[in-house]
Nucleic acid binder design. Structure first.
Lengths: 199, 199
DNA sequence: GCCGATGTATATCGTTCGCTAAACAACGAG
DNA sequence: CTCGTTGTTTAGCGAACGATATACATCGGC
């Protein structure tokens, strides 16, 4: 019953997400956002509220479109052990080819400590990732592809920590050997005890 | 041969470091810094150059005073294995009691990708930490307190990754059980193979 | 005690910040 | 075609940004 929008909401949100992703929340100005999105300031404010609301929207969209879908796909198509390996491999590959790192990790450090609402969202998503690892580890322990002597909770926490650490390391020292070595060693922790391979 | 400064350089640099540490580089204004340091803007600029130079100074000071000294102390007073454990324990304890996280990690994400000079400094320090872990792991493998079947390089990389990951996790989800569990599991990876303890 | 030199205080500089009022443009309902 | 509603454009608000010119205060050397 009125004038329709002239922009594609998905496209402009992608553009905004990219700016936040690259430069962080504080270092991204509304003018930057407007230019990247192809919107004048009033259209931006009319459509999305203010800068903070736009960021929240971008972060939610990023998290929904990225991690959840990936977790679901891996759990549906792979064995538990293979799902863990594939997830870590994907983190390493993405870290090496995309210098922006991970918007979730970037935001966890920059925004979450000063913004309870976003902090809660991020904590929940980290919890989801931990849950994914925990489910896979328990399943792998049952089917013999993971060492049942380790506590599943702690293993899941270490894998979560490893993912976050890889994302940090990649942004300061994006060397394939380093990232791949760390990921390989984290996976080695899952291995069940070898019977006749001692040195 | 002229008027001496009326402020304690160490004290004002501590104050500046705290502001950068808490709020990040972009979100800290020169007025914030001046107020925290007790300096008017011209004194600040006269003494330290500009905001970027002050940040570099704070970061260098933080890195020199913190990590290097800690590494040196641990390697001098403990066995290799105990040094690794103590370092991880310290990271967990500090992460839980100091909500600011780690200035090195915060800067690695926010500043390093857009600032080659600081990026180099941070990469070097991460290399030093990796070197510390590598020395300790090799020594521990020699004295039988670490599993010699693992590649020392990869173990060191995983421990480095774990430290960074713990720092991120602590800022978004500072739960003792999570951090302690991840650290414990990372240390478990060092354990030499048990002889008669299989499940 | 005076002078050159350096540090500090006052008062901004021009720019950019997040955000918005007001005028104009494009649609559906009647 | 008119009207009410919504989106877009133009222009600019007050505040805060990083950084400084200028004037004043305080030191060592003479």
């Amino acid at each position: 019953m009125a004038r329709p929008r002239t922009f594609d909401e998905d496209a402009v949100l992608d553009a905004a997400t990219d700016r936040f992703w690259r430069h962080g929340y504080a270092a991204t100005s509304v003018r930057d956002l407007g230019a990247a999105m192809g919107l004048a300031a009033p259209s931006l404010y009319n459509a999305f509220g203010d800068k903070h609301a736009l960021f929240t929207r971008c972060l939610d969209r990023y998290l929904d479109g990225g991690m959840r879908e990936r977790i679901r796909r891996l759990e549906a198509t792979r064995t538990a052990r293979a799902a863990i390996e594939a997830f870590l491999d994907e983190v390493v590959a993405r870290s090496l080819e995309d210098r922006r790192g991970c918007l979730l990790v970037n935001s966890a450090l920059e925004v979450a400590p000063h913004d309870p609402e976003i902090g809660t969202v991020i904590a929940e998503r980290l919890g989801e990732l931990e849950g994914f690892f925990l489910r896979c580890i328990r399943a792998a322990q049952r089917d013999g592809t993971a060492n049942p002597a380790h506590r599943a909770h702690d293993l899941a926490r270490l894998l979560l920590t490893t993912v976050l650490g890889l994302r940090v390391l990649a942004r300061a020292r994006p060397e394939p050997a380093v990232l791949r070595g760390a990921a390989r060693q984290a996976l080695a922790l899952l291995d069940p005890p070898a019977k006749g391979q001692d040195r």
